[in-house]
């Protein structure tokens, strides 16, 4: 295939990846920004979203498209509830100490993974896409659903942005992020804000997974990669900065597709990982973050 179409395909793939990544990483970034918690179990919330989508579409006696739509609403709610529970029972008791919460979320990661293995099983299972449309370009075919994923992820991100900037709850969250003590002094129930933030972060990961699961499959070990990639995105974007996270997701998503056109993909991953480490070492505020 000649270079032009090759690049087009890489860009298309990169956009899909960026969209899903943005959704997942924004959840992680939100939790870190507001709560100063590095949630190592974030990838498992992603996995739970996918597994939840499989259960819902498998057992709901609805046509595939409709069942999937139900999953898109229910799965994030359920995952969010689980996250809120984890926050109240574990993280809150640790007083959100950064290092203790890392250890606790590693434990949570194992617990959730085991729960999925026990109740869902070791197989990778497909979820039917709500519609199947193939776009035939002159050089190659492409899945129409993938483009829909981009649009849907964009819509959800827009909703999050509106929520954060236009609603009182969003304002309260931002206030807590800036100064927790002052927020408490002004009568904000910080505990509830934290539980809500943790739930929202997990729900966003779950929503990303429901979007992606008709393309990939639900598998109990699928949370590992989204976690690492989200970490990368959140770091490049500047820890806790939502706007930076979005730009970084786009950057990483697109460059990952394009870099692997020129290098061996494994080598590309090594280089990308090292670059991220270097960014954190030499520009700890991230590429787009404001100076701390």
């Amino acid at each position: 295939m000649s270079f032009g179409p090759f690049l087009l395909l890489a860009l298309l793939e990169g956009t899909v990846m960026a969209a899903v990544l943005a959704l997942t990483a924004v959840g992680l970034s939100l939790v870190f920004g507001v709560m100063r918690v590095v949630n190592v179990a974030h990838g498992e919330f992603f996995m739970l979203g996918a597994v939840g989508a499989w259960f819902i579409t498998y057992y709901l006696p609805l046509p595939p498209g409709l069942a999937w739509l139900v999953a898109l609403i229910i799965a994030p709610l359920v995952v969010g509830a689980i996250a809120a529970l984890a926050d109240v029972t574990i993280l809150k008791r640790l007083k959100y100490d950064p290092e203790a919460t890392i250890v606790a979320t590693i434990g949570l990661l194992y617990i959730l993974q085991q729960a999925a293995l026990t109740f869902y099983g070791p197989d990778a299972r497909p979820v039917e896409p709500p519609f199947s449309l193939r776009l035939q370009f002159p050089w190659f075919g492409y899945s129409g659903y993938k483009l829909f994923v981009v649009a849907a992820a964009g819509a959800i991100l827009l909703a999050v942005w509106l929520f954060m900037t236009r609603t009182k709850a969003g304002l309260v969250m931002r206030a807590t992020q800036v100064d927790m003590e002052t927020a408490r002094a002004f009568g904000i129930n910080v505990d509830r804000v934290y539980a809500g933030t943790f739930a929202l972060g997990a729900a966003l990961a779950a929503a990303a997974a429901v979007l992606i699961v008709p393309i990939q499959q639900a598998h109990y070990l699928m949370g590992h990669d989204p976690l690492l990639l989200s970490f990368i995105v959140v770091i490049i974007g500047g820890l806790g900065s939502i706007r930076g996270t979005l730009i970084a997701a786009l950057l990483i998503g697109l460059s990952d597709g394009v870099i692997s056109m020129f290098f061996s993909p494994t080598l590309a991953k090594i280089i990308a990982t090292l670059l991220v480490a270097m960014v954190l070492v030499f520009r700890p505020q991230g590429l787009f973050g404001a100076r701390a």
């Binding site: 250890v103 606790a104 026990t118």
Partner: peptide, 13 residues
């Protein structure tokens, strides 16, 4: 795996 996870959480708590 659950035992490992639970041990971690219990320890830190």
């Amino acid at each position: 795996l659950f035992v490992v996870g639970a041990a971690l959480v219990a320890l830190i708590l």
